[in-house]
């Protein structure tokens, strides 16, 4: 598959714009899925996913053919998602840890405050519930959980996509799993 993708990339770089449609149809599902799980909104997800493919197209000459295209594309998409989320959030220091809470920051406080009443959550269908629980996760845990368990990327690839050390990825996955576990056991 990588050989085919590289062939198409070379065609696009030579000016054959149409060859790019093969690349889009090959990755549209994965990119849209990440955006939707991350943004929890169909229209925003579609907009950002399209934007990711357009950014990839305009910057295609900077892509290193020795590397994996999907990793590069995911990186563009996840960055756009994070930017979009930041723009929506009110302007205070979300990353600042709350004193005495051992690694918890304002993200986790916001999401726990945002939870719906328990009866309502229990009435949800399974798929709706999964999306809801993922959307309740703090952003930085949500991203790694999506890449790990929905896109099923290896840890090393997640570290490449998010451009962060493997150790940080592991820590976030651990905390993400614990956060999810708590959300689920509350009910």
């Amino acid at each position: 598959m990588d050989a085919l993708v590289n062939k198409r990339i070379k065609q696009v770089l030579k000016g054959d714009q149409h060859a790019y449609s093969d690349i889009v149809s090959l990755y549209q599902q994965k990119v849209y899925q990440v955006c939707f799980r991350m943004l929890n909104n169909q229209h925003e997800a579609e907009d950002i996913a399209q934007e990711a493919f357009i950014r990839a197209y305009t910057n295609l000459h900077t892509f290193d053919l020795e590397r994996k295209f999907s990793t590069w594309l995911f990186r563009i998409a996840t960055n756009l998602c994070i930017d979009r989320i930041r723009k929506k959030k009110p302007d205070y220091y979300l990353d600042a840890e709350v004193t005495g809470t051992d690694g918890l920051d304002l993200y986790s406080q916001i999401s726990s405050n945002d939870r719906l009443p328990e009866e309502e959550v229990e009435r949800m269908e399974l798929q709706e519930r999964i999306q809801y629980e993922i959307s309740c996760l703090p952003d930085k845990y949500r991203m790694v959980i999506i890449l790990k368990y929905i896109e099923e990327l290896p840890l090393q690839e997640i570290s490449d996509v998010l451009d962060m050390p493997l150790g940080t990825v592991k820590t976030r996955i651990h905390r993400g799993r614990e956060a999810l576990r708590k959300q689920l056991s509350n009910l």
Binding site: Q17, H18, Y20, S21, V24, S25, Q28, Q29, Y32, Q33, F36, R37, Q42, E46, A49, Q50, F53, I54, Y57, T58, L126, Q127, I130, Q131, E133, I134, I145, Y149, I150, L180, L184
Partner: peptide, 24 residues
């Protein structure tokens, strides 16, 4: 629980819309 998440369907005409938005 997370792994049982269903694959999300891509909106129709996604490829065409991207191709239309590409800079010429």
């Amino acid at each position: 629980f997370v792994k049982s998440a269903a694959v999300i369907e891509v909106p129709p005409n996604f490829v065409e819309q991207v191709m239309q938005r590409l800079p010429k």
